[in-house]
């Protein structure tokens, strides 16, 4: 795992972009397989394991990075794009601290490859206070003491936003279910649920 040579981003750039890649596939381009697998004539090109340039659409902005295919969306945002709101806690799709909204749905950013997240609208916690417009979830979390150490908080807020986007006036049970994919070891669940119910009542924006 230590001998992966990063490719020069400038070199053969178009060959590695998703669009160029797909066009290549459409044209029936053949590629010499790197593996000892029966690569048939129609096999599309595989990219990597070295770093390749990718473009992600995060909070409405196109963001570029050059990453290996093994880099997750979470690590790409945190290490390459200076977006550290989503937290890396379990890194195994269990705790929810890395929750972001992708394509309108809540997901675990640790369990998606960054290269796979191209072409999708991604929204992170950073967007909830962007352009001076604060989402009602933010003051509601403060008012209800919905955080203690705070490490799980960005994930809870994004899970809650995903829930309210889909179910603007949730019942208590719907709030509980909507936050079922997030863990808080401090045990702030009661406050979090109250905050989400209050934010729903207070109307939404963003």
């Amino acid at each position: 795992m230590n001998d992966l040579e990063p490719k020069h981003p400038g070199k053969k750039k178009s060959a590695f972009s998703r669009r160029g890649f797909l066009q290549g596939v459409g044209a029936g381009t053949t590629a010499a397989g790197v593996l000892s697998v029966p690569a048939e004539a129609q096999a599309p090109k595989a990219i990597g394991p070295g770093a390749v340039p990718i473009t992600l659409t995060i909070n409405g902005k196109a963001m570029q990075a050059t990453v290996e295919p093994r880099v997750t969306l979470l690590d790409c945002m945190r290490h390459y794009m200076d977006l550290t709101g989503a937290k890396r806690v379990c890194d195994r799709g269990t705790c929810g601290a890395c929750t972001v909204i992708m394509g309108g749905k809540v997901i675990y950013a640790c369990s998606v490859l960054a290269i796979d997240a191209q072409g999708k609208q991604i929204e992170t916690i950073e967007n909830l206070t962007a352009s001076g417009k604060t989402h009602p979830l933010v003051p509601a979390f403060v008012k209800h003491d919905a955080q203690q150490c705070g490490y799980c908080t960005p994930g809870f807020v994004m899970a809650a936003k995903g829930l309210l986007d889909r179910t603007p006036s949730p019942s208590y049970d719907q709030v509980k279910d909507g936050l079922g994919g997030n863990l808080c070891r401090c045990g702030t669940y009661v406050g979090v649920r109250q905050a989400v119910l209050e934010a729903a009542k207070g109307g939404r924006n963003g």
Binding site: M1, G26, L35, G48, P49, E68
Partner: peptide, 27 residues
Amino acid sequence: MQGFEYANPATLKEATALLGNGWGDAA
């Protein structure tokens, strides 16, 4: 995680052509 090469086929035919005969070849 070990490095790997990544493919994004558009059809089933392309996808099956990218698989190998051993579990270590492709996932």
